[in-house]
Amino acid sequence: MGCVSSKESKRPPGYVDPNILAKETTFSVNEVEALYELYKKISYSIFKDGLIHKEEFQLALFRNSNKKNLFADRIFDLFDLKRNGVIDFEGFVRSLSIFHPDTPMAEKIAFAFRLYDLRGTGFIEREELKEMVLAILNESELLLSDDAVEQIVDQTFKQADMNDDGKIDPNEWKVFASKNPALLKNMTLPYLKDITMAFPSFVLNSGASD
């Protein structure tokens, strides 16, 4: 009895019972447990406090704890559900659930909107889109003239900003993303279907079948 759970008693802050998370996300209990193995690996990689700090997230994503990236920052902020500067296990599982292949497209579309609404104004604005385009060009070490960047932004707004008010609202985004599913390819992680094989959990969970 006691021997199995002795290692389990020390749960990090933000730990939530896998049964509860499985009920409220697309993951099964086994998958949540496998995610816990991955979570532990990341959250103990530098600070060893069982929470994922920005540097640990960057290390897992880029193999470099100092690599700055606008989109990685945005993802980190959205995964930080409690808004306290770290990702806890609950935020990790609930947010990754959006990326599960079986999660409804509407949830992915809504998440992508929040991701691209850089300043949280409720709209994707022209300036925000330009900032993101410049960030990706910088990341790819591509040089484009300001005119070319403006053209890309203009063209995209022509397609997405249906009422032509200079900003993309959630409804316009929904219509635009539904028409262009390729835009949402990065909102699905096929890995999440194989997570139990990639990170097998050997913890005996006596409550799993209750």
């Binding site: 991955l38 990341i42 989109f71 990754l96 385009v133 932004v153 063209q155 995209t156 949402l184 890995y191």
Partner: peptide, 25 residues
């Protein structure tokens, strides 16, 4: 006229959005 790439399509290729790397050992 050559078609201009959609900005969101370009953005979706960002390394920072490729969470698959989290799962690589």
């Amino acid at each position: 006229r050559p078609s201009v790439m959609n900005a969101f399509e370009l953005i979706s290729t960002s390394q920072g959005l490729n969470l698959g790397t989290l799962f690589e050992k």
